[in-house]
């Protein structure tokens, strides 16, 4: 068990190393591109250029440059954005992270609850009008672009119907930290989180329905019925148990991807100062240090999530823990 953990940890470090080399290579070692000019930003003075060149070691060989960059990112954490006139990048990302995390936590709560309910009901009532209705709605949710949906929500709740009794509670766009006001925090995030979760509800409900129906054909389910278990027990206790493996792995990947900045569009539309919006800003101004930091931050989350999923997998299916599947 300890050996497996160590191996897993080594694997994670290796993956992160690979990603950092890749990102570094794309932005800094592309032939013909002068990273100094990019880091310094557009229209920088020659003095600034010279300062950047020596600070990042761009007059030194590539491995040194890479090491310097990683050192600035992870050890001294003083990587600064030149676009933003010397603001350190790492604290910026750290300040944005709780916003994104809050948004994604709320969204995932919605999408898990709703997709479980819809997926199970659709599977139980398969091919009925209820099932078709839900799957139709799900497809609709799946195909609505999140930025469009967000704008529509804003239009309705912020301006058009803001003064009706229905939406008067909706706060202005922006984020309220939990420490400041838990209620304000929840109110500020409710609509963005719902908007973000719509597509996931559609997708997850479909996946769960398909997996559940496949599981119901298994011998083990026949055994459960032969034991005298009622339908609720057969579906929820036995069926779900067999079918939520792919649901869980899908969830882990999506969750990590969103926390890593994948909720960019939602954050921009609802003016939430999260990691996604930070990445968006960095890309807009070609702020290379900021991009480097956000990409590495995202990579850490995805790699971590992968490890967590594998752990959860082993808990859900003991055959995986022993490195064998089936017979």
């Amino acid at each position: 068990m300890l050996r497996m953990l160590a191996a897993r940890l080594g694997q994670m470090v290796f993956v992160l190393f690979g990603i950092s080399v890749l990102v570094f290579g794309v932005f800094f070692a592309t032939p013909g591109a002068d990273p100094t000019a990019r880091i310094a930003g557009r229209g920088a003075s020659p003095e600034v250029m010279a300062r950047v060149r020596s600070a990042y070691g761009f007059d030194r060989p590539l491995p040194v440059q890479y090491a310097r960059m990683m050192e600035k990112l992870f050890v001294s954490r003083d990587l600064t954005s030149f676009v933003d006139h010397g603001a350190p990048v790492v604290p910026e990302v750290m300040a944005a992270a709780p916003v994104t995390l809050s948004l994604v936590l709320w969204a995932s709560l919605f999408w898990v609850v709703f997709s479980l309910a819809i997926g199970i009901v659709s599977a139980v009532l398969r091919d009925s009008w209820v099932d078709r209705f839900f799957m139709g709605i799900g497809l609709l949710g799946l195909s609505m672009p999140v930025f469009w949906l967000g704008e529509v929500v804003n239009l309705v709740t912020q301006s058009r119907f803001h003064d009706t009794w229905l939406f008067s509670w909706v706060p202005p766009l922006g984020y309220v930290p939990f420490s400041e006001s838990p209620l304000g925090w929840a109110r500020a995030l409710l609509l963005p989180a719902l908007t973000l979760s719509v597509a996931f509800i559609g997708l997850y409900a479909r996946v769960l329905r398909a997996e559940l129906l496949a599981a119901m054909g298994e011998d083990a389910i026949r055994t459960a019925r032969a034991k005298g278990a009622g339908p609720a027990r057969v579906w929820l206790w036995h069926g779900l148990r067999l079918s939520w493996l792919s649901y869980v792995s899908l969830f882990g990947m999506d969750f990590a991807q969103l926390v890593g900045g994948g909720a960019l569009l939602t954050e921009v539309v609802f003016a939430l100062p999260g990691v996604g919006r930070l990445t968006y800003q960095g890309l807009n101004t070609l702020d290379l240090p900021l991009i480097m930091a956000t990409v590495m931050y995202a990579a850490v989350f995805v790699v971590l999530a992968n490890a967590v999923i594998d752990g959860v997998y082993a808990l859900l299916d003991p055959r995986i823990a022993e490195g064998r599947h089936g017979r």
């Binding site: 032969a226 034991k227 148990r241």
Partner: peptide, 24 residues
């Protein structure tokens, strides 16, 4: 039927590997 199954009439199947829930 539910009261009958497993209590008065019980069944065993061909492949005990797949007949048991593999995850419990």
């Amino acid at each position: 039927w539910r009261r009958l199954r497993g209590k008065e009439i019980a069944m065993i199947f061909q492949d005990p590997m797949t007949a048991f829930l593999p995850v419990r």
